[in-house]
Lab assay of single mutants.
Amino acid sequence: MKKYKITVYDEKTGEKHTIEIEMSEEELEELAKKLAEKHNVKVRIEKV
């Protein structure tokens, strides 16, 4: 498992949230996809 920083940005409201999380790359990609689809936000992932 690796550490990642996830930034979620909502273009409508301008809200931006960043968290650090430790998980596998596959789980992370699935999480990012679900966030983007369900909440209509942009998701950026960076390795820490």
Score class of each variant (00 low, 15 high):
I21P: 00
E11V: 13
K12D: 13
K12W: 12
E46M: 02
I45A: 01
T13F: 03
E37S: 11
H39G: 14
K16E: 14
E27F: 05
E22P: 02
V48A: 04
G14S: 05
E15M: 11
V41N: 12
N40I: 04
K3E: 03
K33T: 08
Y4K: 00
E15W: 15
T13N: 06
L35G: 00
I45S: 00
E27Y: 06
H17P: 01
K5P: 00
L35Q: 01
K16F: 06
K38M: 13
K42G: 04
V48S: 03
K42E: 08
E29Y: 15
I19D: 04
I19H: 06
I6V: 10
V8R: 02
K5Y: 04
L28M: 12
E27N: 06
E46Y: 02
E37K: 11
V43P: 01
R44E: 15
S24G: 08
G14D: 05
K3D: 02
A32E: 06
T13Y: 03
Y9S: 06
G14V: 01
V8H: 02
V41Q: 04
K2T: 14
E26K: 11
N40M: 04
V48P: 04
A32G: 05
K5Q: 05
K47Q: 15
E26R: 09
L31D: 00
M23K: 01
L28S: 03
V41W: 09
E27I: 04
K3S: 04
I6N: 00
S24H: 12
E20S: 05
E15K: 07
K42C: 14
K38T: 09
V41K: 05
L35N: 00
K5A: 04
E15L: 09
E11S: 09
K12C: 13
K33C: 11
Y9M: 11
Y4V: 02
M1E: 07
Y4R: 00
I45W: 06
L35E: 01
I21D: 03
E27S: 06
E22W: 13
V48C: 13
V43Q: 00
I6C: 01
E20F: 14
T7G: 02
V43R: 00
H17V: 09
E29I: 11
Y9D: 04
S24E: 08
E27W: 03
K3R: 12
E15R: 07
E22A: 06
M1D: 06
H17T: 12
N40W: 11
Y4H: 02
K47P: 14
E22R: 06
K38E: 07
E15H: 13
K2F: 15
E22Y: 13
E37C: 06
R44A: 10
K5H: 05
K3V: 08
V41I: 09
A32F: 06
H39T: 13
I6H: 00
E22C: 13
K42R: 12
E11I: 14
E30G: 09
E46V: 04
E26D: 13
H39E: 14
A36R: 11
